[in-house]
Amino acid sequence: MAITVEPVIQPTSARGSFEPLDIAADRCKGCSLCVGICPKCVLALDESTVNALGYHAVQLTDAAVCTSCALCARICPDAVFTVYARPKGSLT
């Protein structure tokens, strides 16, 4: 499955469910530091595609489990993550 980068102005309601992360997959170099640091193990490299830089970019595998802890954003050397707070009561 190809990764699509949602534009920031895309309304949450239009997607039907809450998206905690915006990932700038075009800048990701697939170093996998975030994959190892994610406490919920919901980040993985998308090995089915390569981005323009020639790397397998990271993707969020399960948006419902992500807690918006932002550890991925704090370790990322290429600042690909934008993190949003999960609305109260929406964590499954």
Binding site: P11, A14, S32, L53, A73, P77, V83, A85
Partner: peptide, 26 residues
């Protein structure tokens, strides 16, 4: 498109340019 209503926790800092760096992965 309606404005994004999600509450921001972290975003790429303003003073970091949009350019992709030449540094190796990691």
């Amino acid at each position: 498109l309606a404005p994004d209503t999600r509450r921001l926790i972290y975003e790429r800092p303003e003073l970091l340019t949009d350019r992709s760096s030449h540094y190796c992965p990691g």
